[in-house]
């Protein structure tokens, strides 16, 4: 086989090895998928809190006006997401992420894994 052909195939093999080393294998992919689900859950819960707030209800209340999001628990541990009100007019919903989060979504703190929602009813 010609040297250029060997080099082309070797390049492909090295690229696959480097790819798996850099991006991670199946376990890493599963972690990323769970984190994507957590992020989606946080935003769904944030919409729910904003809906309650817009209707003048308590952020922890349940109301037929604002249907509860389907997933309110961690996809791996099944523990509920942590909801708190660190200060007046602010609600935070937190999840424990497995991988480093680089998203710059408004109100999301990548270090703590918490999404903050400013309530309008307290303005």
């Amino acid at each position: 086989m010609r040297a250029a052909g060997i080099a082309l195939v070797a390049l492909a093999v090295v690229a696959v090895a480097l790819g798996l080393w850099t991006i991670g294998g199946p376990e890493q992919a599963r972690s990323e998928n769970r984190d994507a689900q957590r992020m989606s859950d946080l935003h769904a819960m944030a919409r729910h809190v904003r809906c309650l707030d817009a209707n003048g209800l308590d952020p922890r209340a349940e109301s037929p006006l604002c249907p509860l999001p389907e997933a309110r628990r961690d996809p791996q541990t099944d523990a509920p997401y942590h909801i708190s009100t660190p200060e007046d007019g602010i609600v935070t919903i937190c999840a424990v992420f497995e991988t480093a989060q680089s998203t710059r979504a408004p109100g999301f703190d990548a270090d703590t894994g918490c999404l903050s929602i400013a309530l309008r009813s307290t303005d």
Binding site: G19, G24, A29, E32, A36, R104
Partner: peptide
């Protein structure tokens, strides 16, 4: 940020 790792995974 918006681009996940699915593109390199497909390539691999």
């Amino acid at each position: 940020d918006w681009r996940g790792t699915y593109i390199p995974r497909w390539a691999i």
